[in-house]
Design a protein around this nucleic acid. Structure first.
Lengths: 148, 148
DNA sequence: CAGTATCCTCGAGGATACTG
DNA sequence: CAGTATCCTCGAGGATACTG
């Protein structure tokens, strides 16, 4: 990103985008949530250029979103997997999945099932206090009015 | 995006990124959730180049995320605001805000308050059925295993 | 104030051949 | 199989002067 530094923007969303707001990053993370863990799997699955994949994996590793680990079956190589920080991107993926499903009627939306309760999932963003769904007008920012 | 078409990817996340996965788009949407509605406000607030802002607003409008509307106070010009489709990006912003707050300890995280219950919010992604927080291992995709 | 027009930079991404 | 190396394209983004 050749944009001027956005770290000074004091905005968590801008900072998040700085780390994973680039196309392939989130898709790689998605693959990892699906259990993909090897270079060629990502490459084949996503159709990404090999050099770019190398660069993305390096960056995600630097940022602590991805880590290497020894593959149990194949002694020679290491796989990639999400760190806790990476796992924590799951809600972002869910939110995007939901939105994408909702506004792309041309393709059948993918339905997710919650194993523990059996429910078809429409992921909901709720307040951890009252468990009510969050809507933007019901929120107030704590320190400033406009900066997130 | 000069990537080959990702519409064939059959992945809601990819399709979402296709629409708003570009840096400025989500930040513009964020500004709109904060009530910003005029060209120069976005430009000044975000520090985005004017021609780029024009392009982004056009694209967001084409995609049905943003719409024009007559400004009540100033008769001559129209403002920009989110459509329902645009408003529905709110959970995505919340998920990113949460993640950004969580992993950027150097800056004081912005706290959100839920007006209706007074709680400090840590937005939670829950199952709409059982209201339990969603974790990736508890989900099963309905049609295919790997495609989201 | 809300853009449009012009010109420029540069990095993200692609393609592909090669290597331990 | 997991990359690295090379070379290339092109569009996103910036800066800035101008206009109704």
């Amino acid at each position: 990103m050749q944009r001027k530094s956005f770290s000074g923007m004091n905005c968590s969303i801008a900072r998040s985008l700085e780390e994973v707001g680039e196309w392939w990053s989130l898709l790689i993370v998605r693959e990892m949530t699906q259990g993909m863990n090897r270079f060629d799997q990502f490459q084949k699955e996503l159709g990404i250029a090999r050099n770019i994949l190398t660069a993305r994996l390096e960056r995600l590793t630097e940022l602590g979103i991805v880590e290497r680990y020894p593959l149990p079956d194949r002694a020679s190589t290491e796989g990639y997997r999400l760190t806790p920080k990476g796992e924590d991107l799951y809600p972002v993926l869910l939110a995007m999945l939901r939105w994408g499903n909702r506004y792309k009627v041309d393709e059948p939306p993918l339905q997710l099932v919650h194993k523990s309760c059996g429910h078809n999932i429409d992921p909901l963003m709720v307040c951890n206090g009252c468990k009510e769904e969050l809507h933007r007008r019901e929120l107030r920012a704590y320190f400033t009015e406009t900066a997130w």
